[in-house]
Amino acid sequence: MRLGLSLGYWGAGPPPGQGELVALAEDLGFDSVWTAEAYGSDALTPLAWLGSRTTRLRLGTGVVQVSARTPTATAMAALTLDHLSGGRFVLGLGVSGPQVVEGWYGQPYPRPLARTREYVAVLRQAFAREVVRLDGEQYRIPFPGGTGLGKALRPTVHPLRADLPVLLAAEGPKNVALAAEVADGWIPLFYSPHDDAHYRAALAEGFARPGARRTADDFEVACTVPVEVDDDVDAAADRVRPMLALYVGGMGARGVNFHYEVFARMGFEAECARIQELYLSGAKAEAVAAVPLAMVEKVALVGPRAKIADDLAAWEASPVTTMLVSGPPETLRTMAELVG
């Protein structure tokens, strides 16, 4: 299992010290660095900026939002970054949720799986420097209306790699199976190595489909894992609880919250309902306090160094191939020593 540095997306502005943190990760032997986007900072610009300071780290987006750019615009960015980094770019894609897709991008959200399948098909054509054509339900290239002068084109840039890797972010079983079928990897969120039978089944289903691109042996699973080192387990968990309460309680609407569903499948349905009720009613502190330690420990590494070392065994036995961690320099050093 390899280590990656997860930087996420900005808050109100550029986080201080990220350049130094990326340099440290490279010095410690980390494999990759990953950026994200929501509805503020984008994923590609910081990755290019930070990547210019590195020589070995793979540069991944975790994730670029599908609705933010047309598939050909994303292909151009990927081709460009791959050249600038000497073949180190990894394109992670995700569909986000209806609140962001419709509320921020002004795009329709329904049928995200079909949209993702067509999006990846366009990317593959561009990466192979083929003439891009698609007569899909979500994307039609060239556009059949308008002036009638649209022309099928191929990239002017010669790709550095025709097999530039594409990873899909997915939480539900159908999305996970799609990732195993059409992508080079999967980016889970709130994955638990203790409750992953449904994920393993979904991956197996995708690998077994006709024309599947990869097998379990050459498929990347890049998973974000919160890490909090502290002699007091509850104090460590307290630093993870606000994030879980936000995603379970506030990232989505009642009945349409994919993160809620992930934890409900782990057996925390009653807890999720309580957290969401509190969060959406404005009682955020109470929602945070309602996150049980058991829920935190399903998806995070918390507590003393020795406990974290023991808990790593479950992750190393899981399908996860790249563990994405974040935190201060001492956390990165600890994980580099433990994962080796």
Rank of each mutant, 00 (worst) to 15 (best):
A212T: 04
G87Y: 07
L149Y: 10
P15A: 14
R129P: 00
T334F: 14
R140N: 09
A169I: 02
V66L: 15
Y9W: 14
G172C: 07
G206Q: 05
T147M: 01
P159G: 07
I275Q: 00
Y119M: 12
G13T: 08
M76D: 12
G136C: 13
T54I: 09
A197K: 02
R265V: 09
G86D: 03
G11S: 15
L189M: 12
P144C: 13
Q65M: 14
L123N: 03
V262A: 15
P155R: 06
P304A: 11
V95M: 08
G60W: 03
L5A: 07
V66S: 00
D311P: 04
L44C: 08
A237P: 07
G4S: 09
A78L: 10
D195S: 13
L134K: 06
V66R: 01
G340H: 12
Q107D: 09
E297H: 08
L3H: 00
V22G: 01
Y139W: 15
G62Q: 11
D310M: 09
L332D: 12
L84C: 07
A177F: 10
P319C: 06
L84G: 04
L203D: 02
K174C: 02
V120I: 14
L134V: 13
E118A: 13
A78W: 05
E286D: 15
A48I: 09
H158Y: 10
N257R: 08
P328C: 03
E261G: 09
G148T: 11
D230C: 05
Q65C: 01
W34K: 08
P292I: 05
H194V: 06
D184E: 05
T35H: 10
D82M: 11
A183D: 00
